[in-house]
């Protein structure tokens, strides 16, 4: 791309840092364990009846994601560590960083992220998901993707169009939120691989493999984004 050399800090955002509380670094490690173990426990039910299992697990997933956001992540418009040099046009907004505002932000972010469900479902259909059948399954798997990947991004970045252009063009600096989201989508993409095989396994049914890939990719991306690749950007060429 044209401007890959040295992105100026004023133009490009910085990676997200966790909240400087004692609980944040602990819960951010509990969070993936929680997700994966819950997923592992629900897996037989998911295979047996994807629709109802995905539906019933939406609320618990939302709770886990919201607690993760509130406990670990800086809500949009706040900054856990005020930048050394105040940016022009951005004031310190510590005043609204109260304990009651954060759940509200989380709730609004949750509602906003639900708007991505039709888009995610449409993308799945464009990739070859059935359109005449299995519609609840596709929508529910999109809902899981939205809660996993989109919700934390909304919580952290709000609705800033510049930020979101960066996110959609996958050019945000990698941090654990963005890394997890990218991992989640790559995982879902890879989840399509075993579907055509003629192994006649129950778990090959739609959308079990996609959701499995998404959860696995989410956790892998979160770990990699928070540690290994933090601050890097994905270059296409």
């Amino acid at each position: 791309m044209s401007s890959t050399g040295q992105p100026s800090p004023s133009k490009f955002s910085l990676p997200i840092e966790l909240l400087p509380t004692g609980l944040a670094p602990i819960f951010t490690h509990i969070h993936p364990v929680l997700l994966l173990s819950a997923y592992y426990l629900r897996f037989p039910a998911l295979v047996a009846d994807p629709t109802s299992t995905l539906l019933n697990s939406l609320a618990p997933l939302a709770v886990v994601q919201m607690s993760y956001a509130v406990i670990c992540l800086p809500a949009t418009g706040t900054s856990p560590r005020p930048p050394k040099k105040a940016k022009p046009g951005s004031k310190k907004t510590n005043t609204n960083d109260t304990s009651s505002a954060k759940p509200l932000t989380a709730f609004l972010a949750l509602l906003l992220s639900l708007l991505s469900i039709p888009v995610l479902a449409a993308i799945q259909v464009l990739f070859g998901a059935p359109i005449t059948t299995h519609i609840p399954q596709t929508l529910l798997s999109s809902a899981h993707l939205a809660l996993l990947a989109v919700f934390p991004l909304v919580y952290v970045h709000g609705s800033s169009s510049a930020r979101w252009r960066e996110i959609i063009s996958v050019y945000s600096p990698i941090d654990e939120v963005f890394g997890a989201a990218v991992g989640c989508f790559v995982g879902a993409w890879l989840g399509a691989v075993p579907i055509p095989l003629d192994w006649d396994r129950e778990w090959q049914k739609w959308p079990v493999t996609i959701v499995t890939g998404a959860y696995t990719g989410y956790v892998v991306g979160k770990l990699a984004g928070g540690k290994l690749l933090k601050g890097k950007r994905i270059e296409l060429d």
Binding site: L126, F127, G128, R165, S169, V170, Y171, W189, A192, L236
Partner: peptide
Amino acid sequence: LLFFISTFGLVAAISSLR
């Protein structure tokens, strides 16, 4: 093949956004 073609299109959209 549809899966791959859509993948290319998605990456192209991401790239175009940049």
